[in-house]
């Protein structure tokens, strides 16, 4: 495996290798104790993801998809095991470094859009780029391109409350993609969308996956998503029960 890493200002090493393993989750476990009853959400999972993968984590509700996604995104910590991202164990990072890590490397798409209601669609999409202090002309260039790609150019100055569910989710996806993160972690991104909107959204993500080489990980049980990903990892009761490369492309 050819790997060349460079220390970034966030303390996270950036990946330069084309085929390197960018995410290496090793023997991770997580147990929750709601009401004092321990529930093992994740059981000794090993997971390796390479750059540019388009992966779906599938499984029934409660199988641990979201928990795994959150741990990869540095939102949640495993009880044991390690998660190496670009050779840095993110389970050992401080909260402040995790925030920077998320800011510079991960784009999140949440199930319920989670746009900031007081910002316009464009401001929402720019949110992460603004936190990254990207210059205005670069932001505008990127935002114009993305809004055009998703057909929302005329909705840039509209607040989320004036957008439909599908439009809001598209803006949420734009927010995740705008800063060109290494990884896009999407939790049930199509759960609240009709088929047309869902396909539209997946087309955009596939297009950017091809063009920009971002790694996508979806947590989903939506067959429309599963049919379009390149790799499907199935979880049941917190364990990986299958990991298949699809022949979609």
């Amino acid at each position: 495996m050819e790997k060349r890493a460079k220390q970034s200002d966030t303390g996270i090493e950036k990946l330069n290798s084309k085929d390197a393993t960018v995410i290496d989750a090793h023997n991770i476990s997580k147990t929750y104790n709601p009401g004092g009853i321990p529930i093992r959400a994740i059981k000794n999972i090993h997971l390796h993801l390479s750059k540019g993968e388009f992966v779906a984590l599938v499984g029934p509700s409660g199988s641990g998809k979201t928990t795994l996604l959150n741990m990869i995104g540095g939102l949640d910590q495993p009880d044991s095991g390690s998660i190496l991202i670009n050779n840095t164990d993110i389970t050992r990072l401080s909260q402040a470094k995790l925030v920077k890590f998320r800011l510079h490397h991960i784009g999140f798409v949440f199930q319920s859009y989670n746009l900031i209601p007081v910002l316009t669609a464009q401001e929402n999409a720019e949110f992460i780029m603004l936190l990254q202090k990207i210059k205005k002309f670069k932001r505008n260039e990127r935002i114009d391109m993305l809004f055009q790609a998703v057909g929302l150019s005329d909705k840039k100055n509209v607040r989320p409350s004036q957008l439909s569910g599908g439009q809001q989710q598209r803006v949420a996806v734009l927010r995740a993609l705008a800063s060109k993160p290494q990884f896009v972690l999407a939790d049930e991104p199509t759960a609240n969308l009709d088929s047309e909107a869902a396909f539209n959204l997946l087309d955009i993500m596939l297009k950017l996956n091809k063009e920009e080489g971002m790694t996508y990980i979806f947590s989903t049980h939506d067959q429309r998503v599963i049919d379009r990903v390149k790799r499907v990892i199935k979880l049941v009761d917190g364990e990986v029960v299958s990991d298949k490369i699809t022949d979609i492309l």
Partner: peptide, 10 residues
């Protein structure tokens, strides 16, 4: 919480 998840610091 969502803002912090996206990378907005405390």
């Amino acid at each position: 919480g969502m803002m912090m998840a996206l990378g907005m610091g405390k």
